[in-house]
Amino acid sequence: MRISREEVEHIALLARLRLTDEEKDLYSEQLSNILDYIEKLNELDTSHVEPTSHVIPISNVFREDTPVESLGVDEALGNAPDRSDPFYRVPRIIE
């Protein structure tokens, strides 16, 4: 299965990655190879197999609706690259 350069550009845009021309060619090639490899699985007939939702065979793991202590503002903002207390500060979003 071919992954075109345009598709690589689209995926890069969605992932906010800036790629050079060489990288686009390289990833187009590599992604295509990966998909070809995975394609092998399609040789199996899975029409009678339930799709897997989760690899661990358990369901219904819940917590009760009981509040616990939250982080303080300082700790919460501790890893932020930029802050303007008590907020995270980011580049302006709206035009």
């Binding site: 919460a76 303007s84 008590p86 907020f87 995270y88 500060r89 980011v90 580049p91 302006r92 979003i93 709206i94």
Partner: peptide, 12 residues
């Protein structure tokens, strides 16, 4: 999000 003049502020 709270939008300021030169940045946006985020409350989570």
């Amino acid at each position: 999000n709270i939008h300021e003049k030169d940045c946006s502020l985020v409350d989570l």
